[in-house]
């Protein structure tokens, strides 16, 4: 799968879609493919505040567990309960219905990569 050009990417394999002052966050196709079938997702609660790089959740697959890091300073304004209840959505559609949280961005999004630079970080 191609990484969409309109997203920003963290080296720790999260993506951020900026929509005005808000952002949608998920894990990348490379991340879901590396993990394999996802069986459990833990996400923060609405209202929680984070700084960039802070651990904000966990994804587990049959074979591995991985922490999810916040790509920007923000406050959580929505959580994708459908993905929590159906973790396979993240495998099937990591940039669409498998999104994880919606946030209000509270600061710069420095240090994130564009799709092309991120592709260079995706080495098994």
């Amino acid at each position: 799968m191609k990484n969409p050009e309109n997203l920003l990417y963290a080296e720790s394999h999260e993506w951020l879609k900026v929509e005005g002052g808000e952002g949608v966050i998920g894990i990348t196709d490379f991340a879901q493919d590396s993990l394999g079938d996802i069986t459990f997702i833990e996400l923060p609660q609405v209202g929680e505040k984070f700084t960039q790089g802070q651990e904000m959740g966990t994804v587990e697959s049959v074979k591995a567990a991985s922490d999810i890091y916040m790509p920007c300073d923000c406050e959580v304004i929505a959580v994708n309960e459908e993905a929590v209840n159906n973790p396979e959505l993240v495998n099937k559609d990591p940039y669409g219905s498998g999104w994880l949280i919606r946030v209000s961005i509270q600061g710069a999004t420095d240090g994130l990569l564009n799709a092309q630079d991120y592709a260079g970080k995706c080495v098994h």
């Binding site: 394999g36 079938d37 069986t39 049959v62 074979k63 396979e88």
Partner: peptide
């Protein structure tokens, strides 16, 4: 081989 294309759950 740990898994093939369909994945462990399938």
């Amino acid at each position: 081989p740990i898994q093939y294309e369909e994945g462990i759950l399938a």
